[in-house]
Every structure is written in structure tokens, then in C-alpha cells.
């Protein structure tokens, strides 16, 4: 496998792509705003250079649409894509399973369960300014992490298979519980269902800040361990004989990526396939080393998610398509393709 594309160029291209997407996405939508106008509006809000922009022809409505409605949504989508892809990349390595994604640990189901309770019974508690449903989803996700964690230690021995089985069984249990809730509260069925499909339509700046901080902090803690993560992926014995405390590293990584996924899911609902396919696309471009895989997955995940969300809110405007449906439309065929190639043993990565 030859890597023809230079690494700094990939980073550069991904960053330019994100910036262009932010500008582009903030100009499209129900109310048409020119690309250059939205660029100037965004530019005018930059800390130091902002004053250089000519602000005389900005309409108040344009400012509100770009800065208060579209920008937080774009940023929220970007952070969610970044967080889910990073967690996917980490979990695939830590669980040594190329088909692992942030949902295998049951975190998404936990969040959905929390959200379903909040929606169905009308509970509302606001924490960190992220809103009632999101707070409940976050609590559900965090409790699920704890439960899966406890279950995977039953029998005293910690193993990768144990963690996966615990996650899958808790996840199916919670899915049944959500179904029961939806049946009991049939009038809220649609709302619960729409939440589970995932959407960024309820984006606010507090949510964006909340998710941004958690994603960046997790990334900051994960990045220094990239080389150790490579070694861990070759097996516990192999890693320990090379001087790595395999269990401690695995636990730390699972906790960090779980927290990140919990935050993503609680503000946006369940958005599938991003955490699975983005790391695989990046592996094809830049190889399996986590040192490149993780930062590139973050950037590529943000791009993919902003793109999908923009499609979701413009394709059938003014109606919205759940973003989870868009990512799955692109993701599911890719997933099957990947599965077929893994079975054949011919994956080049």
C-alpha cells in the first residue's frame, strides 16, 4: 500500500475544507444569503480582523440567520462529527475490532432512553444550559456507561469480548425499554422517534460550547497516547511485554471516548455510521497509525457531519430530514462494502 498524498497537504486540505464548508453552509437555507455576504458576516465577528470588514450593508435579519441560527448549528454538527469519529477510531483500536463504533457500548441507547423518558413524561431539568431533553439524555448515557462498565467486570476478568457483550446486551435491553415507553405514551411517539433519528435543529450556543469543550478536552487527553494505542491494538500480552499497562490504558481510553460520545448523543440524538466509516476512510488515506488517524478523523468527521446536516436541512426545505437518515444513506452501503471486503480478507488498509 503506497501513500501517495503528503500528510501536511491532507491536513491543510481538510482544514480549508472545514472553513469553506462553514461559510458555504451558512449561506444556504430557506433564506438565501450570498456566499460573500455570509463570509463577510462571519469575518466581521473574528476577534481582531473583524473591524476590517465593511458592515454597512448587513441586514439585521441576515445577521440573526447567519450568526444565531446557522452558525451554532454548523459548529454543533462539526463538533459532533469530530467527537463521534474520534471515539470511533479510538474504540476500534482499543476493542481491536474494525467494525466497532460508538454505539457498541450502549451509550447511544442510554441517551435515547433518557431522552425518551424526558419527552414522554414531560420532565425538564436544565443543566449546563443544554436543555431538558439533552440533560436527561446525558444522564442516561452516563448511567449506561457505569452499568456496562460494572457488567463487563462480572466474573473478575476483564476482556474485550466481555466489554462488547455487556454493551450489546445493555443496548438491546434499553431499546426494548424505549419501545415500551413509546407504546405507553403513544401521543409522544413521533417526538421520541424523531429525537432518536438525530438532528441538530435544536442547536444553541450553550450546547455548542458544552460539546466543543468536552470534545476538545477528550482529544487533548487522547492524543498523547496515540503511539501506545497502536501497540495496544496488537494484543494485551504484546502491549504489556512492550511496557504498556494494557488494562489501565484501555480503561482510560474507553472512559474518555464514552464521555465524548455521551455528550455528542445527548445534544444531537443518535447519528449512526459517522463513527464507523470516517475512521475507515481515513485509514485508506493515511494508514492505521493513531497519531495520524485520530486527528484526521476529527477533521474528516466534522466535514462529513456539516455536509450531511446541510443536506438534511436544505434537501426538502423548509421541511427537515433527520441527519441520521442522511448519514445512514451514505454510511450503510459503505458499511456493507466494508463487511464484504473484510470477509474476503482482502482489505488493503
Amino acid at each position: 500500500m503506497k501513500r501517495k498524498i503528503a500528510v501536511p497537504f491532507i491536513y491543510f486540505a481538510l482544514t480549508v475544507c472545514i472553513l469553506a464548508l462553514i461559510v458555504g453552509a451558512s449561506s444556504v437555507g430557506a433564506a438565501g444569503i450570498g456566499v460573500f455576504r455570509s463570509l463577510r458576516i462571519l469575518f466581521s465577528r473574528l476577534p481582531l480582523l473583524g473591524n476590517l470588514a465593511d458592515q454597512s450593508d448587513f441586514r439585521p435579519s441576515d445577521l440573526t440567520i447567519v450568526l444565531m441560527i446557522r452558525l451554532p448549528r454548523i459548529l454543533l454538527a462539526g463538533f459532533a462529527g469530530c467527537g463521534l469519529s474520534m471515539s470511533g477510531a479510538v474504540l476500534q483500536g482499543v476493542l481491536r475490532n474494525p467494525l466497532a463504533d460508538p454505539q457498541v457500548l450502549g451509550i447511544s441507547s442510554g441517551a435515547a432512553f433518557g431522552a425518551a423518558i424526558a419527552i414522554a413524561f414531560g420532565f425538564s431539568v436544565t443543566a449546563w444550559g443544554i436543555g431538558g431533553i439533552a440533560s436527561f439524555a446525558l444522564i442516561g448515557a452516563l448511567l449506561t456507561i457505569l452499568v456496562v462498565w460494572r457488567i463487563s467486570f462480572i466474573g473478575g476478568k476483564e476482556s474485550v469480548v466481555g466489554i462488547l457483550l455487556a454493551g450489546i446486551s445493555v443496548s438491546s435491553l434499553l431499546t426494548s425499554a424505549i419501545t415500551l415507553i413509546m407504546v405507553m405514551r403513544r401521543e409522544q411517539l413521533e417526538k421520541v422517534y424523531m429525537w432518536m433519528l438525530g438532528s441538530f435543529s435544536s442547536a444553541t450556543y450553550p450546547k455548542t460550547v458544552f460539546l466543543g469543550v468536552i470534545t476538545l478536552v477528550s482529544l487533548l487527553f487522547i492524543l498523547p497516547s496515540c503511539f501506545s494505542l497502536d501497540v495496544l491494538a496488537t494484543g494485551d500480552d504484546s502491549a504489556e511485554s512492550l511496557g504498556i499497562d494494557a488494562r489501565r490504558l484501555r480503561r482510560r481510553m474507553i472512559v474518555l471516548s464514552s464521555l465524548c460520545v455521551a455528550a455528542c448523543v445527548s445534544v444531537s440524538g443518535i447519528i449512526g455510521f459517522v463513527g464507523l466509516i470516517v475512521p475507515h476512510i481515513v485509514r485508506l488515506m493515511a494508514g492505521s497509525r493513531n497519531r495520524r488517524l485520530i486527528p484526521m478523523s476529527c477533521l474528516a468527521g466534522a466535514i462529513f457531519m456539516i455536509l450531511c446536516d446541510t443536506v438534511a436541512r436544505t434537501l426538502a426545505a423548509p421541511a427537515e430530514i433527520p441527519v441520521g437518515a442522511i448519514t445512514a444513506v451514505i454510511g450503510a452501503p459503505f458499511f456493507l462494502f466494508l463487511l464484504a471486503r473484510t470477509r474476503g480478507g482482502g482489505v488493503r488498509v
Partner: peptide, 25 residues
Amino acid sequence: SYVPQKIETGIRFTVEETVMMGRNP
């Protein structure tokens, strides 16, 4: 140092990347 019979290859590293892991300590 330990030479196991095989290692996990779920995540596919290249030969050079694998040998580089020996430098971890």
C-alpha cells in the same frame, strides 16, 4: 522481550509500523 506466536491484526498495521512498536520502552 517477548516474541509471541502471533499478534492481533484486527487493525492492520504495516510491517514497519509493527517493528517500530518494539521501540516503545
